[in-house]
Amino acid sequence: MDSSSGFLPAGAANGGSNNGGGAQAQQQAAPPPIREQDRLMPIANVIRIMRRVLPPHAKISDDAKETIQECVSEYISFITGEANERCQREQRKTITAEDVLWAMSRLGFDDYVDPLSVYLHRYREFEGEARGVGGLPPGATRGGDHHHHSMAPPPMLKPRAPGAAMPPHHHDMQLHHASMYGGAVPPHHGHGHGFAMPHHQGGHHQYLPYPYDPAYGGEHAMAAYYGGSGAAYAPGNGGSGGDGSGSSGGSASQGGGFEHQHPFASYK
């Protein structure tokens, strides 16, 4: 915490003082006045996430919504500040996902690291798949149809091996494949995983070719995500310690992610 204290005033200036049209308060933080819509997460998205964890009869006042909105921006600033300091210390220019995870575990959000690692891992898998399937080099233009592929992915699939960042989650890809496709997405073939993709959310466990730990935080996180249930994560699952050590994988991730479209974008 202490090393972040130098950052906090800036974060507070960014996130703490808008209570209604605070453009003038932002001018000291950044040269152009920051528009409200650039400074905060969209309120509808925030409300949707809030409603997910509240009972149906709960109401949310407008000021509570706005406060949470502020808090989210502050949260991003808070974590980013810590990640930023780390980059500065190590004389790196780019804040990576691992820096963010590291900062979270350092600032007390250890419980988030597991589900986030899974989420990131799954994202990378899909991204790698999207990149590998077309046989296109990074940055090459690809049509929006890469999700139609029906052949087995080529060997270059998964360019980022599950490395230092998140070794315990290797097997989870299939689980998340399963739960992902259990959503509103039509059945999808040819991923080469050797098992059928379930069409419904509830039954995906039976497709898993391995035993899994039901207490696993990431599983809940993803299921909550796609199922819209309230269990966003399972705090305190100690199944895979040492997540803060993901930093060593940082450099590997820097190159990716910019060149091509989001692999999930087609799955709407």
């Binding site: 997460m41 925030v46 996430i49 809030m50 997910r52 964890v53 949470i68 808090c71 989210v72 949260y75 991003i76 974590i79 990640a83 804040i95 990576t96 996902a97 820096d99 963010v100 995870l101 979270m104 959000f109 419980d111 988030y112 589900p115 986030l116 989420y119 990131l120 994202y123 990378r124 996180a221 995500y225 309230g230 966003a232 994560y233 991730s253 990716g256 992610g257």
Partner: peptide, 15 residues
């Protein structure tokens, strides 16, 4: 990837 992580992290945080 950093915003990708944050997108999920913010969900957990809001929740």
């Amino acid at each position: 990837e950093a915003p990708v992580v944050f997108s999920k992290a913010c969900e957990l945080f809001i929740a």
